[in-house]
Design a protein around this nucleic acid. Structure first.
Length: 467
RNA sequence: GCCCCCAUCGUCCAGCGGCCUAGGACGCCUGCCUUUCACGCAGGUAACACGGGUUCGAAUCCCGUUGGGGGUGCCA
């Protein structure tokens, strides 16, 4: 039997990194065993039926290189199958109509001294279907549901704890539980790999599965959740989790995939940064961890930096374009003043310094505008311009030398060194701060020589004025 | 509250009863390299939550405690 997995997100907006990780692990598993992956959009709730959200799922997956062989299927388009299943369950006595609202159910529970929730009050009341009726599944009063989770081992639930859950809303639409069981069966899914937050829906789905006589059940594997620094499940509301946002902030898809693969799983040989093909080869679903994992941007930055540095420089330049032209990002210069040939000249030096493409403009901004900003409160300024010795003299010496020096990198460099030697002080760092605005950056002189003499002279004067 | 799940350095992972005086990576710190910052290189810091068992032997198995998380919807 062919292994078939599915990624089945609810279309609730942009694809978030947790979902991407689920998709990735499904894909990794399918690839590692030569199986198939299908994409299914779980839009049973009419409120979720927003076509623009489909793109928000499909496009990031494609960008990440997560491929599927079938789909996307839409549960909304398979509604009739789910409705039929509900009817079948009613006919066979596995389900019944209920006309209580949530509030009424809670009220009854309170009166009966039972915990909040639904306690089967409409069972055997012979309630007829009507406009305000839902259909509830009649869960067994005793016994238990036991299953083997590939990642967690044996998990068991007591049927007595399961409430008679809703399988069809009062508007007639079946809920995700039925849709899930019916679709997984129809689509011959062999392995259901998803987040741990869905673990306790398994017994309900299995009960439905048996009641509907859907045949062999799939194997389940529940992935550890991705959490924030507070160890809470990553949420769209409070965390930065949009996959596309990460990509547009200058993270490479390959780096993101590599990082995601390392959350909940690690290669036995401990080599973390490696091509996805090797990860596919080494991936074992049963080796996935049980504990939740913190989505650590610092580590992502490191991995991304490694991937950036490994790029051929031409590719680095090409991939920097959206950032140097300010497509998604802010740039400190006027687009008309941007000089691609200057960036090309310094690209290799920039490349080994950045962790994300979004950092590229910081390293080259001083090359494309007349003036730079000095932050006199910054550590760099204080260290170079306040703690440094003979700073006014150095700046004056530079200004004087630059007034008529030959305008080449070598001559500029030599002139500044000469000033330093003469004053017996370090002149290179103050020169850098005056010219670029900061004490850290790419090799100075080749780049500085592309600036106009006037511009450099004005910056030296401006820096001196701030002393 | 109830149900379920989880528990190795700050973080991510390795470890599947003896190779563990617990390994790798990120971060952090130190040094080297370097006329800046990075990169690179060499070091350092730091963990088996606790208590009971089982066993000749436990980070690894079992039980409990504590702590954390997830669920508890006519969301998925």
């Amino acid at each position: 039997m062919t292994t078939r997995v599915r990624f089945a997100p609810a279309p609730t907006g942009f694809l978030h990194v947790g979902s991407a990780r689920s998709a990735l692990f499904n894909w990794l598993y399918a690839e590692s065993v030569g199986g198939e992956m299908i994409l299914r959009i779980e839009d049973t709730d009419a409120a979720l039926r927003k076509p623009e959200f489909i793109d928000a799922i499909v496009k990031p997956l494609e960008t990440l290189g997560i491929t599927w062989s079938e789909g996307p299927y839409y549960q909304s388009q398979r509604k009739q199958f789910h409705v039929d299943a509900v009817e079948k369950l009613v006919a066979s006595g596995h389900a019944y109509f209920c006309n209580l609202t949530r509030d009424q159910a809670d009220e009854l529970a309170k009166e009966a001294g039972l915990p909040a929730g639904y306690h089967g009050w409409s069972r055997d009341k012979g309630i007829e279907d009507g406009p305000d009726c839902v259909v509830r599944f009649r869960t067994p009063d005793d016994g238990e549901v036991v299953f083997d989770d590939v990642i967690r081992g044996e998990v068991r639930f007591n049927c007595a704890e399961l409430e008679d859950f809703v399988i069809r809303r009062s508007d007639g639409s079946p809920t995700f539980l039925v849709a899930n069981a019916v679709d997984d069966a129809d689509m011959s899914i062999t392995h259901v790999i998803r987040g741990e937050d869905l673990l306790n829906t398994v017994p309900k789905i299995m009960l439905l599965w048996d009641a509907l006589d859907l045949g062999e059940k799939p194997t389940y594997a529940h992935l550890p959740l991705l959490v924030n620094e507070q160890r809470k499940k990553l949420s769209k509301r409070r965390d930065d989790v949009s996959l596309m946002d990460f990509l547009s902030q200058g993270y490479l898809p390959e780096a993101m995939v590599n990082h995601l693969a390392l959350l909940g799983w690690g290669p036995p040989d401990e080599k973390e940064i490696r091509p996805i093909s090797e990860i596919v080869e080494l991936f074992k679903l049963e080796n996935v961890n049980k504990g939740s994992a913190f989505f650590d941007i610092a580590k992502l930055n490191h991995i991304n930096g490694e991937y950036i540095r490994a790029l051929p420089v031409e590719e680095f330049i090409e991939k920097s374009e959206p950032f140097v032209y300010g497509v998604d990002t802010e740039i400190s210069w006027d687009k008309a003043d941007y000089k691609p040939e200057v960036f090309e000249m310094v690209a290799a030096d920039v490349q080994q310094r950045v962790a994300t493409f979004a950092e590229v403009p910081h390293y080259i901004g001083w090359l494309f505008s007349d003036s730079v900003e000095y932050d006199v409160e910054s550590k760099g300024w204080k260290k170079a311009m306040i703690k440094g010795k003979m700073i006014p003299e150095i700046l004056d010496g530079m200004a004087e030398a630059f007034a008529d020096v030959e305008w080449t990198a070598e001559a500029l460099n030599a002139a500044v060194s000469e000033v330093g030697d003469r004053l017996e002080a370090r002149s290179q760092v103050p020169a850098r701060v005056a010219i670029t605005g900061t004490n850290a950056g790419i090799p100075l002189w080749d780049a500085a020589a592309t600036l106009d003499r006037d511009v450099v002279l004005r910056r030296i004067a401006a820096a001196k004025a701030l002393l």
